[in-house]
Design a binder for these strands. Structure first.
Length: 382
RNA sequence: GGACGGGUGGGUGAGUGGCUAAAACCAGCAGACUGUAAAUCUGCCGCUCCUUGCGGGCUACGGAGGUUCGAAUCCUCCCCCGUCCA
């Protein structure tokens, strides 16, 4: 069987140590998945990602459909071959663009009409169309199209979006059953329901009835407070089947990751390590380093003295600040490498902690260190 | 020696009588970023005081005077810079 998910260990906190097997290799969970929207994790080569030991990366249906086009990628042998990445890929459906391109789209029960952010041309994405694209791309994990809404949103709006998302999930499942290949791709359903617990529970229960091989929790970390994100996640994971992977979409900050893991989340992705890197924000075991700050101009130390990444083995804060200040390409490359290492390494440590049944200890250590750093000025000082 | 043109806040450079502590951009300083419309966005950026307010005081458009209720803007002289003519 091409796809397989097994839970190898559980932690008293509720965290799970697991492994997803795919035709392109295994993914150890809990996993952090670097975001590679346009068939590239910005600033990193595929060799870099392999060196970082990224086991899976994301691609985006909407972006790849617009450019270079999914048919072109199909002709080029699929997304893996096209981008020369032989490990697993998860494609997001365009559901998040329903949220982020709010001024450029219209949603109705059929699907979403977008005006391209590139040239203004109009495009229609339905659950079926999104899957047609994802099948052409050949990702290992495909996401259903969902309606991701803003926070806060009132109950009726949230209920409507969750209902539509559920309807789209059913259509997606049916389309995939007819046109997809379960030996090549896993299709994940997405729970919505905003910050309304009852709607979350209803959404989760109904989605489970559709029997997907994996479940995602969407529409969180879109502006609501972190404790709310956790409450909603907890309400949902409690109702998802234990033998299926759970993917919390779009999270999170370093200090939040272990919280989600403790709530039974197996997969997450986030643009923070890559985007923040480009913006000069570096994550460390001692808090954030805003590398453009003048205090680092003559700082000979690595970003993080406890970090074993290639950047920290070789370059000083002073040099990295210089690269950032002068707008050099290398700044993006090195900063991204470090941040991804930090996220992926944090996940490795989390997996290790779960294996020992010590996630709570790890989590409180990490959080107290990071929170102390934020209190003392939000960044590493010495 | 003469004829033009020009000297504005760290830089470039708008501004020809009040709406100008002075556009814009750059540099500088700080912050934000959560399924990527993001190598982006936001704030500060003369000094100073406080009850931090679309607050008060001071200083400021080469220099010194002058005209005016009011001057970066008009006048006089001087000093610099550029171009051209002797």
């Amino acid at each position: 069987m091409a796809f397989h998910f097994e839970v190898l260990a559980t932690d008293p906190s509720g965290a799970r140590l697991g492994r997803i097997t795919t035709p392109h290799g295994a993914i150890d969970t809990p996993a952090f998945m670097p975001v590679g929207t346009a068939a590239t994790v910005k600033g990193q080569t595929q060799q870099d990602l392999e060196a970082l030991d990224a086991q899976i990366i994301l691609g985006n249906t909407y972006h790849l459909y617009l450019r270079p086009g999914h048919e072109l990628i199909r002709r080029m042998g699929g997304l893996h071959k096209f981008m020369s990445w032989s490990r697993p890929i998860l494609t997001d459906s365009g559901g998040f663009q329903v949220f982020s391109l709010s001024e450029l789209r219209k949603v109705n029960d059929d699907g979403v009409t977008f005006r391209s952010h590139l040239d203004g041309s109009e495009h229609f994405l339905s659950p079926e169309k999104a899957l047609e694209i994802e099948i052409a791309l050949g990702s290992d994990i495909a996401m259903v199209l969902d309606e991701c809404i803003e926070a806060p949103a009132d109950r009726s709006r949230t209920k409507a979006a969750a209902a539509r998302t559920l309807d789209w999930a059913r259509r997606s499942r049916d389309y995939f059953a007819k046109h997809g290949e379960a030996t090549k791709q896993m299709l994940f359903g997405i729970v919505q329901g905003g910050a309304h617990e009852a709607l979350r529970i209803e959404s989760a229960n109904s989605l489970v009835d559709l029997d997907f091989p994996g479940y995602a929790i969407g529409g969180l970390a879109v502006g609501e407070p972190h404790p709310v994100t956790c409450e909603m996640t907890k309400a949902v994971t409690a109702r998802l089947p234990a033998d299926k992977p759970r993917y919390l979409m779009g999270v999170g900050k370093p200090e939040q990751i272990a919280d989600y893991v403790a709530l039974g989340v197996d997969m997450m992705d986030c643009v923070l390590p890559t985007r923040s890197a480009r913006h000069g924000c570096l994550y460390t075991s001692q808090g954030r380093v805003l590398i453009r700050n003048s205090q680092y101009a003559t700082d000979p130390r690595p970003i993080d003295e406890n970090c074993r990444c290639a950047v920290c083995q070789r370059y000083s804060r002073a040099y990295l600040r210089h690269l950032y200040s002068t707008g050099e390409f290398l700044s993006t490359i090195l900063n991204t490498h470090h941040n991804l290492y930090f996220y992926l390494d944090t996940m490795r440590k989390i997996r290790e902690a779960i294996g020992f049944g010590k996630l709570e200890t790890f989590r409180s250590d990490l959080q107290s260190r990071l929170q102390r750093a934020e209190r003392t000025g939000g960044r590493v000082s010495g």
